[in-house]
């Protein structure tokens, strides 16, 4: 492949260097996004070009770890897209109720807001005690924060509104304790969540699960990587298991589209065929 623009070549070499030295693979991410992140880091740190920054990345682990944080997406919220959670209650919970034990995989959970949302929903539906939620991410710093379950007070108003719009049955304030500028999620919500480091790009199947949620992660991947991760999900779901994607993510262009039926087309909820 010939590169017209030197900075494209430099970015490609940097991603190769990060992969070979640290094992994190961004080579098949959407390029415009990666480019934006790398260029922002470069100018914030005062480098003249990407090659100059590459030497720093290879020789300074602290700087590399900072860049990895820049390349990882941790934007999330509780009950993000309330209509989706409403559909989850109506269309997926009845399926889950038929199982004696339930395994759920939150892939790319970032700081955990959606995993806690799921725990709340399952508690209200009387299913949480027989459920294990595997919440995974490749970003260990984000996972550590998720494990703590401490979130900023500033977001609570929006989360409460999301929760109510999603069909929540209680007062949202009974799920956390306020403490100065933060809220701490209830211990009872954490007990069946297993937080684990897992990289969708480089790691493989680790469990057979009834439900996978992976929302707004695949949009960052190119088509080839999307297909690889879709295969990973397919192989991790039991027959009849459910896959939930982000509201702008589709299975339609995936090789596996024929292997699912759509439970809710608009909310991107799919059921693996028997």
């Amino acid at each position: 492949m010939r590169y017209k623009d030197t900075s494209d070549l430099e970015i490609s070499l940097l991603l190769e260097a990060i992969y070979r030295k640290y094992g994190y693979d961004f080579r098949e991410y959407s390029q415009a996004h990666i480019r934006r992140r790398i260029m922002n880091r470069m100018s914030a740190s005062g480098f003249e070009d990407v090659s100059q920054m590459q030497s720093k990345v290879l020789n300074d682990e602290a700087f590399a770890s900072e860049l990895l944080q820049n390349l990882s997406i941790t934007v999330t919220e509780m009950f993000r897209d309330p209509v989706f959670y409403r559909s989850l209650r109506e269309n997926v919970i009845p399926v889950l109720k038929t199982y004696p034990f339930i395994k759920i995989w939150h892939a790319g959970c970032a700081t955990g807001e959606e995993a806690y949302s799921m725990a709340i929903l399952l508690q209200e539906e009387g299913l949480y005690d027989r459920t294990t939620i595997y919440a995974t991410d490749f970003n260990q710093m984000a996972l550590n924060r998720a494990k703590d379950g401490i979130f900023s007070n500033k977001m609570i108003k929006e989360y409460t509104s999301n929760y109510q719009l999603s069909g929540g049955k209680e007062s949202f304030s009974c799920y956390y304790t306020s403490n100065y500028d933060n809220v701490i999620m209830n211990q009872s919500l954490k007990k069946n969540i297993v937080w684990a480091n897992h990289n969708l790009v480089t790691d493989s199947v680790f469990a057979e699960v009834n439900l996978i949620l992976c929302r707004n992660v695949l949009i960052y991947f190119d088509k080839n990587l999307q297909n690889k991760v879709q295969t990973l999900f397919y192989n991790s779901l039991i027959n009849g298991g459910v896959l939930c994607l982000g509201s702008k993510e589709s299975l339609r262009f995936s090789d596996l589209y024929e292997q699912y039926i759509e439970l809710d087309t608009k909310q991107r909820i799919f059921k693996k065929k028997y």
Partner: peptide
């Protein structure tokens, strides 16, 4: 010349 979407900050 294709679109990408992100949920970045």
């Amino acid at each position: 010349k294709t679109f990408s979407l992100t949920i970045d900050e």
